[in-house]
Design a protein around this nucleic acid. Structure first.
Lengths: 235, 235
DNA sequence: CCCACTTTGTGCATCGGTTCACAAAGGGAC
DNA sequence: GTCCCTTTGTGAACCGATGCACAAAGTGGG
């Protein structure tokens, strides 16, 4: 018996591929809205901003969903990617920390794109507890464990000050959460098995600055070449 | 003549290393505040959440700044990394799009950590133009080119709706900007030589969902294994 | 001055990811 | 049915990044 499906599906999609699937999904949704029925790897690759060989290899990790000579069925591919990413179920998300950023996240519409639902907002500041934001009541951080349990929260977004993040992380992990999106500028330490993704504005800016500096250096003929430590520290 | 410095500094720090330098810098700043004079690669690596061999290799790309048997001088290393990242000069940043997110960014203190200064806020909505946010006047997007030129803006943060992002990107590029931090959920197309970094909440959540699903699948004995396309589309 | 100990810097093996380039597969015309 | 055209799926070469493991370099004690 020749197994036609799932030659490459014995559990294990490369991390780099997983990170691109949401991109493909977004491009596909745009195409579906514009009424396209099928799309070639070339066109989809352009829309997603990657090269077509990479796109095909990525999709091949999910299964063999294209038709040679034709391309991919847009709706079908949307379904397959959504399923693979786990977006056919809906995920209850709790946001901890309702400062400027937390508020922005709560109100961010596209964030509830598909599959995600903000189920709770929590904060430690009695000043904001009770406020109504994006149709939700802000609850006190003391309710954290209860809220997670009662509302089936499985993903927590940390938008707290840096100083509070580790402490909150410990509590949500203790409450059984294994997926955290961290906006606080700290390195969180969590037990194995807990996934953390980090978004850090400051780091992104610094990376840009590095490249920007290099670009302007090039124009002005390189850096001062022997820019030394201001004090008299000789190597 | 044996060149003692810059064996490995002939222009070209790996991208992966650049992305970690800000992490090291943050950890080092914390240590400097606590009064530490020197630090070993092992300790710094733990603080930054990486492994020590990687840390040493990263630092070796900047030069040979450690002392065997001792470690690294905290202040000196802070200076070297800052210089390499271009943080010894200050960068004027403009934020375009003053919705919830733009506001949060403008107010985000740690963002002006060192070297960055929000020099302008711009928006297309006459409703918000003129508002005072984080000590700055919100200006109309028509002023974009003027503001960039007059205030020496070299990094632009896009926090506009998805639909407006490409158009704004075209304008800032035309105005000479080559570094963009994009928060809008679109793939921007820009000429070669322009650096774009993208922050996308929705994508991060989807990646988390993927892993979360996999974890729960494992517990319940794998996915339904032959979960098919709902309609009668036979492969 | 010498020895024991610490810690850096790096050569090397390895791994994961990207890209090329092409055989295999399907569609459509005649 | 046959031929030609399009497009997928993938083997294989390549490239950058990671991690091990150790020699080289420095410190401090006696």
């Amino acid at each position: 018996m020749i197994r036609r499906l799932s030659q490459a599906r014995e559990r294990g999609i490369p991390e780099a591929t997983v990170a691109r699937l949401p991109l493909y999904l977004r491009a596909l949704n745009g195409m579906a809205e514009r009424g396209l029925a099928t799309v070639s790897s070339e066109d989809l690759a352009v829309a997603a901003g990657v090269n077509s060989a990479k796109l095909r290899k990525d999709l091949s990790h999910l299964g063999s969903y294209g038709t040679r000579g034709v391309g991919y069925d847009v709706e079908y591919l949307i379904y397959q990617i959504s399923r693979e990413l786990g977006l056919t179920q809906d995920w209850a998300v709790a946001i901890v920390g309702v400062g400027n950023l937390g508020r922005a996240l709560a109100n961010y519409g596209g964030f509830v794109s598909r599959g995600f639902r903000v189920a709770a907002l929590l904060d430690a500041d009695p000043e904001v507890v009770g406020d109504r934001i994006a149709g939700l009541n802000v609850e006190h951080i003391d309710e954290l464990e209860t809220v997670i349990r009662r509302r089936g929260v499985s993903i927590v977004v940390l938008a707290t000050p840096a100083a509070a993040a580790q402490q909150v992380a410990d509590r949500v992990v203790a409450a059984g959460i294994t997926s955290i999106l961290n906006f606080a500028p700290v390195v969180l330490s969590v037990p194995e098995g807990v996934d953390i993704r980090k978004v850090d504005l400051s780091i992104e800016l610094q990376i840009l600055a590095f490249h920007e500096q290099r670009k302007t250096d090039r124009m002005t003929g390189g850096p001062a070449m022997a820019e030394e430590w201001p004090e008299a520290v000789d190597l």
